[in-house]
């Protein structure tokens, strides 16, 4: 919506003109190409108390994702499946426009888009998380903590969630159910978000770009080049051709991001 927390920092008309002028020359405020994402650094195993975690730095945007694994009862309609639940916190320390309190519509949309990506992309094999059919299953809690908001939370959160799941173990020994084992991650769905500014489309918008964008589109693709989730946002529109172009760019960029997420960075700098 128009008074979104994401756009509340009023950006001077000058900045808008500046970004537009740069775009007409094929470049962006931070010198990137239209299809270039910011520097991405992922530190897995950041929180030792969590079953899995990852700190994501996407440019200056910082997001910490944590996975906790507990035992619970399955949903009645899926007695032979574990449970995945995703939540996002826009912590007030991350931006002057974030306020304490229950999650607003931005946080809910963020959590649901991240959830859709990993759920529909079958990142985790939920059928392998059953302890006793219909009675006892593992519940995977994915919590996204936004620490510093400099644009494009969808992607930072999506990368964090996937990396934290890859990092996660199932704490079987804690419940005397045998040895701990790696969470069964079988697919690697990766979101890439684009913003439409004027007639230009840029990947991984930073805060300035996001605040003058007319429309936004997130496309989540997996390692097989399949599309698992999409989410369009804001009150502008895309043409059919623009959507096709965005999907293709998302696959290309997603492949590079996937390599970084899969990279070995167990609590160390990478």
């Amino acid at each position: 919506m128009s008074n979104s927390k994401f756009t509340a920092g009023v950006i001077p008309e000058m900045m808008k003109n500046y970004i537009n002028r740069l775009a007409s020359k094929g470049t962006r405020v931070d010198g990137r190409g239209f299809d270039e994402i910011r520097a991405l650094k992922i530190t897995k195993g950041y929180v030792k108390r969590a079953e899995g975690s990852a700190l994501v730095e996407l440019g200056k945007t910082k997001v910490l994702a944590g996975v906790k694994v507990e035992i619970g009862t399955p949903f009645p309609d899926t007695p032979n499946m574990g449970i995945l639940t995703t939540n996002a916190e826009l912590a007030p320390l991350a931006s002057p426009t974030f306020e304490p309190g229950p999650p607003g519509e931005e946080a809910i949309e963020l959590a649901r888009v991240v959830d859709r990506g990993i759920r529909e992309g079958h990142a985790i094999d939920l059928e392998k998380l059953v302890i006793e059919e219909g009675e006892k299953v593992w519940i995977i809690f994915v919590d996204i903590h936004v620490l510093d908001y400099d644009g494009n939370l969808f992607d930072a959160a999506g990368y964090g969630a996937l990396a934290a799941l890859i990092d996660a173990i199932v704490p079987a020994s804690r419940y005397e159910l045998g040895d701990d084992y790696k969470l069964p991650v079988q697919h690697y769905p990766v979101p890439v978000t684009f913003a439409k500014i004027g007639n230009w489309i840029v990947a991984d918008p930073n805060l300035d770009e996001e605040s003058i964008a007319s429309a936004r589109l997130t496309v989540t693709t997996n390692e097989e080049g399949h599309i698992n989730a999409m989410q369009k946002g804001l009150s502008g529109t895309f043409t059919y051709e623009e959507v096709q172009k965005v999907i293709n760019m998302s696959m290309d960029i997603g492949a590079k991001v996937r390599e970084i997420i899969l990279g070995d960075s167990d609590g160390k700098e990478n």
Binding site: R119, E120, I227, M230, Q231, K232, T239, Y240
Partner: peptide, 30 residues
């Protein structure tokens, strides 16, 4: 793939998707 379309200009105002589709399938659906 839920969509909302401006019928005159064919602009896309809402686009969501969940599930698993190849590029060609998604294009056909759109």
């Amino acid at each position: 793939v839920p969509m909302a379309i401006l019928p005159r200009t064919k602009e896309i105002a809402l686009l969501q998707m969940d599930g698993d589709m190849s590029y060609d399938e998604l294009k056909t659906a759109m």
